[in-house]
């Protein structure tokens, strides 16, 4: 498992390994993918099958990113936040934020309203 701030080497189908730099910036305010700020704190994410609180679907305010990782094309984060329905504060499991897609290796962010399930 990679830890915050490390570059992730992502195997391309052909040719040399491609590197995706994923890191957390500005005291947990941002996820940067390949030196572009792509995901910010302050969003509300819907979480299903999660362990941040007892709500079936958590309405989870992202207050700060704690870890970032890349697993294949998927970019995953752990975030500190709070379910605004029940008030429980927690650090989430690994949640998807988007994927590296296409030949130009562009980051495609998940929509804010997407229901996310933590990865094992």
């Amino acid at each position: 498992m990679l830890v915050r701030g490390d570059a992730y080497t992502n195997e391309a189908p052909e040719g040399p390994p491609m590197t995706t730099a994923v890191r957390i910036l500005d005291d947990g305010a941002w996820i940067s993918v390949d030196d572009e700020r792509v995901v910010s704190v302050s969003e509300l994410w819907q979480l299903a099958d999660h362990d941040v609180c007892g709500c079936e679907t958590a309405d989870f305010l992202i207050e700060g990113f704690v870890d970032v990782d890349a697993a294949g094309p998927a970019v995953l984060v752990r975030a500190a936040g709070q379910c605004v329905t029940c008030g429980e504060s927690a650090v989430s499991g690994w949640l998807p934020v988007g994927r590296i897609v296409g030949p130009d290796r562009r980051f495609a962010s998940l929509a804010t309203g997407h229901v996310r399930t933590p990865r094992a």
Binding site: D27, G28, A29, W30, R37, V41, E63, G64
Partner: peptide
């Protein structure tokens, strides 16, 4: 949020 990345 006028300028700050962290603010909610």
């Amino acid at each position: 949020t006028e300028f700050c990345s962290l603010s909610i």
